[in-house]
């Protein structure tokens, strides 16, 4: 269980998170939706302790990550896999080296075992024959797949996806969503997906939470969110220009 209590964060005096409260159950796939700049990515970075909040508490299986992960190396983060927005693949490494990297650095597995695991992980995300390519030689969709393979290679208990489908065409988007769902069933991790993809994300997530004005304004199953009476949620999922969400025209 991930428990977030009254989380607050400001940048240069500008409040981004004004008191986020959220509970993420073990094994569920929770999507966090919200406007661009609402603080969703900041929230994800706080979950792994690389942004420190101004106030509030985050408990990972009862352990306070903010207290534990004050230094740059923190063993609690070994429980996480993260797929960053742009993939965050290491430019100077090949695809194979990128995916193998967490295993080489964090485990004592033999090279042969690592090779097999990397090959399997890449096949699971539908990639073959790209091991020797560099990230710059890959398409956007392929980069996301490699990032997914790298995040899952250590079989983490919690996986965070920061806009894993941004900038992809609808077909690749759906295939990445399917990969996430399949991986979730296979590994049983607790997943948090930051997404703008409405309504596609409703097919992937077990629950959806909406972040607006620095707070979670609604959380529930996709059906509950679709049927919500909250005017903010209704405007966001309908993409309407009229409503309580201010739109710059």
């Amino acid at each position: 269980m991930i428990e977030i209590y009254n989380l607050k964060k400001s940048f240069n005096g500008q409040p981004v998170l004004k008191g986020v409260n959220l509970k993420i159950r073990d094994g569920e796939l929770l999507a966090i939706v919200g406007q661009s700049g609402a603080g969703k990515s900041v929230l994800i970075k706080m979950l792994i302790g690389i942004h420190q909040p101004d106030d509030g508490k985050i408990l990972i299986q009862g352990e306070d990550i903010i207290e534990i992960c004050k230094d740059d190396v923190c063993s609690l983060r070994e429980r996480f896999g993260v797929v960053f927005q742009g993939g965050a693949l290491f430019d100077s490494m090949t695809v194979f080296e990128n995916v193998a990297f967490p295993l080489q650095e964090r485990t004592k597995l033999e090279e042969g075992v690592i090779r097999d695991k990397v090959t399997n992980a890449l096949e699971e995300v539908g990639l073959r024959g790209v091991e020797d390519k560099y990230p710059a030689e890959l398409s956007g969709g392929m980069k996301k797949r490699v990032a997914l393979a790298r995040a899952l290679i250590t079989e983490p208990s919690i996986v965070l996806f920061d806009e894993p489908t941004t900038g992809l065409d609808p077909i690749i988007l759906r295939s990445i969503h399917n990969l996430i769902k399949e991986a979730h069933v296979r590994y049983g991790f607790t997943g948090v997906i930051i997404s703008h993809e409405i309504p596609e994300i409703f097919e992937v997530a077990d629950r959806v939470a909406m972040l607006y004005d620095g707070r979670i304004v609604e959380a529930g199953t996709p059906e509950e969110i679709v049927g919500s009476d909250n005017p903010v949620v209704r405007q966001f999922i309908s993409g309407s220009l009229e409503g309580p969400i201010e739109v710059i025209r």
Partner: peptide, 20 residues
Amino acid sequence: IMRISEQIDALLAMALSPIK
């Protein structure tokens, strides 16, 4: 560039020290 493309954050997320 590693900082702005989140590669440093990726190292931190892997429980590894970017400084190292």
